[in-house]
């Protein structure tokens, strides 16, 4: 019996497809997410909107918080480690977290490197803004990719930007010769071996979710229309007026993204969405996606 193999890690990510992964900060919120039909929850101290508002250094959640959430639900529990923070990742692995998000939402810990994810039995998901970034994370052993978007804004434009860029770059690979692939890899900072895989399959070799700014059922449907396998919803649910109804609606929208009639039904009367932030209102140095 072999555990922690790449097939076990990437295969597990395949099981999330078509689903919604929700940020939660308490056991009660985790139960609401599970009841609404989330495929997993992300256990956090603070949702991204609060991290953005409060500032300071954002770190891995307290293990007490993570254990409470693990005890509350039967679905997988994910948690975030700071970019490059090997020790936080080891702690999360020891806690039996089902997936680690090496996340730009927390304050980065290593200015040079991401975590060497091949060294872990627990699978990792990492954010990307384009193909180069996705390919580098996959080369480091990420078993799942998500767009970075701009977390905590309730504004979907950055997630759309990242997915559009990724799609465009994957399409460009199709006609490239071996030599062109090497040059292109250099241009976008992508390892050529990973680009070869992506060229062959016409898509990323791992599951790709949308994240960062998704606040409504329509946002979730939009990201699925662009080709994302599923969505992460961070602040969008528990910063809204009626989290239970909104969570259920986003779950249905993620599956039936191409059924406008049903989208209209589930979008009706959900109450206030989270307050949003225009990206132009955020100073460049405070954008999480550049981490």
């Amino acid at each position: 019996m072999d555990n922690g193999t790449y097939r076990v890690k990437t295969g597990f990510a395949e099981m999330f497809k078509g689903g919604v992964i929700m940020d939660v900060t308490t056991a009660d919120q985790a139960r609401i997410a599970e009841e609404a039909g989330a495929v997993a929850v992300m256990a956090l101290e603070r949702v991204p909107a609060d991290i953005r508002a409060q500032g300071g250094v954002a770190r891995m959640a307290d293990p007490v918080r993570i254990k409470e959430i693990q005890a509350a639900v039967s679905i997988p529990v994910m948690a975030k480690a700071r970019i490059g923070h090997l020790a936080e990742a080891r702690i999360l692995e020891a806690l039996g977290v089902d997936f680690i998000d090496e996340s730009e939402v927390l304050t980065p810990a290593d200015p040079f490197h991401h975590i060497d994810k091949w060294q872990f039995k627990v699978p990792f998901v990492c954010g990307c803004r384009d193909l180069g970034e996705a390919a580098r994370r996959i080369a480091e052993g990420a078993a799942m990719i998500r767009t970075k978007g701009e977390a905590g804004t309730g504004n979907v434009i950055e997630a759309v930007r990242h997915m559009r860029l990724l799609n465009d770059q994957i399409r460009r690979l199709a006609g490239m010769s071996g030599a062109e692939l090497v040059s292109y890899g250099k241009e976008i900072g992508a390892p050529v071996e990973v680009l070869e895989l992506i060229q062959e399959q016409g898509r990323l070799p791992v599951v790709n979710f949308a994240a960062g700014g998704i606040a409504t059922p329509a946002d979730a449907a939009l990201m699925r229309m662009l080709g994302c396998d599923g969505v992460f919803v961070g602040s969008g649910i528990f910063k809204s007026a009626d989290p239970e109804r909104r969570a259920k609606a986003i779950v249905v929208a993620c599956t039936h993204y191409d059924d406008p009639q049903l989208l209209a039904e589930v979008s009706a009367g959900l109450g206030e969405a989270m307050p949003g932030i225009p990206i132009e209102a955020i100073p460049t140095e405070e954008l999480m996606q550049h981490r």
Binding site: G18, G37, A38, A40, S74, I75, V252, T255
Partner: peptide, 15 residues
Amino acid sequence: PGGESTAMWRLMRAT
């Protein structure tokens, strides 16, 4: 298929 049974069931009930 494989997936999360609770999520699948809620989605199956919705329609």
